[in-house]
């Protein structure tokens, strides 16, 4: 199974992303923050499945996106991570890149922008 992990504290955003990308033929897992995501990912890997992509928000309670990427990269160097940043997110983009994020989308985004970005990492 190929999974895409969607990490955002807003359920609306998670759902809307899911609607857009599930057409790409991937399975979706959700998490509300970085910490929860790390647990879900651990589960995916333990069951022998493949994680294709993480899409993560930056500002979240408990564990923010940047910290998540740093933690995640400690034992996964190759899975792409796409960050969702806000318009004034130049600093966040740089921090994210440094932490090991692969790409970013600026919120609010259009459906095709999301698909374009996702398609840069999975086919």
């Amino acid at each position: 199974m190929d999974y895409v992990m969607i990490i955002d504290d807003s359920v609306t955003i998670r759902k809307s992303i899911e609607l857009v990308i599930k057409n790409l033929g991937v399975a979706i897992k959700h998490a509300q923050n970085g910490k929860e995501a790390l647990n879900v990912i651990k589960g995916i890997k333990e069951s022998g499945d493949n994680l294709s992509l993480c899409i993560t928000d930056v500002n979240m309670p408990v564990m923010d996106g940047i910290t998540f990427v740093k933690e995640f990269r400690k034992d996964d160097r190759f899975t792409p991570v796409l960050m969702l940043t806000t318009e004034a997110g130049e600093a966040a983009i740089n921090a994210g890149k440094e932490a090991g994020a692969s790409g970013w989308i600026v919120k609010p985004f259009r459906t095709d922008q999301l698909i374009d970005a996702v398609k840069k990492f999975i086919r």
């Binding site: 990269r73 190759f78 991570v81 086919r123």
Partner: peptide, 9 residues
Amino acid sequence: FRNGIDPLM
């Protein structure tokens, strides 16, 4: 290749 970028893609 790190961070999931595939140049071929």
